[in-house]
């Protein structure tokens, strides 16, 4: 642990030199004692330098491994460094860092093992394109049907976890590209409790979203199939443990 804190913020970042500094500053303002680790996913810009100068620990991939792989590197870092809880926030400034204390408090107080910042709960503000809104609604339905998950914003990248959840996420079975409803389904079948708080998500102020171009089509196929597979594996594991 860098500062003796038992909590760490994990920021996955790919070419976010323009934005990651402000995210770190916002986090420091909201939680001055919080350790921050930026997982630089092989950026070609100065993401690493900006994050270091802003006071964060930086773990850099030697080349691009994907958003999910960057997150998992952060989970491994948190686990190996002995943190009790971790906060996950995107490096593009979409999430409101001032809500970090509330999100972590849900896990710290034992209300849940994983807390999600939801755009769709009362008090949360929604700013997302129609295609993503449709995708998110479909995923919600899928989660409810396959695993009884009643969360309103399964695609939220603003999350907090306890250590047991981190250990599950750091295991081998974690997608390298889009960790989404499939991961929540897996956690649900492992007995992890999920809670949500309202959160504001802003539109990106620049850079390229990982959901640009034809990627939403692949994303829909991939997450839907992975969710069904996660539910089938979960049910099989439940049956074999009875």
């Amino acid at each position: 642990m860098a500062s003796g804190s038992s909590e760490v913020a994990i920021i996955p970042a790919l070419n976010e030199a323009q934005r990651v500094g402000a995210v770190i500053a916002d986090l420091r303002k909201a939680m001055p004692g919080l350790d921050v680790v930026v997982v630089n996913d092989g950026s070609s810009d100065d993401t690493e330098g900006v994050a270091r100068r802003a006071g964060a620990t930086v773990v850099s991939h030697p080349y691009r491994l994907g958003y999910g792989a960057a997150l998992q590197t952060g989970y491994l870092y948190a686990l190996r460094s002995g943190y009790a809880r971790a906060l996950q926030i995107d490096g593009d400034g979409q999430h409101d860092a001032s809500l970090a204390p509330q999100l972590l408090a849900v896990v710290r107080n034992g209300r849940a093992d994983i807390a999600l910042g939801s755009r769709f709960l009362a008090g949360g503000k929604v700013a997302m394109p129609l295609t993503r809104r449709i995708g998110s609604a479909t995923l919600k339905r899928l989660g409810r049907v396959l695993a009884g998950i009643a969360c309103t914003d399964p695609t939220s990248g603003f999350r907090a976890f306890d250590r047991a959840t981190l250990a599950l996420l750091a295991s081998e079975d974690f997608p390298h590209d889009y960790p989404d409803m499939d991961v929540l389904i897996r956690l649900r079948f492992a007995g992890i409790r999920i809670a949500e708080i309202p959160a504001t998500v802003r539109e990106r102020s620049g850079g390229t979203s990982m959901h640009s171009g034809l990627r939403p089509l692949y994303y829909a196929y991939k997450v839907a199939l992975a969710s069904v597979m996660a539910a089938l594996r979960g049910r099989r594991a439940q049956r074999s443990s009875v």
Binding site: D177, Y218, K222, L225, A226, M229, L232, R233
Partner: peptide
Amino acid sequence: LIYRRRLGENYGA
């Protein structure tokens, strides 16, 4: 194959 984790969803497509 995907269920048994022997093939990734990306190659499955």
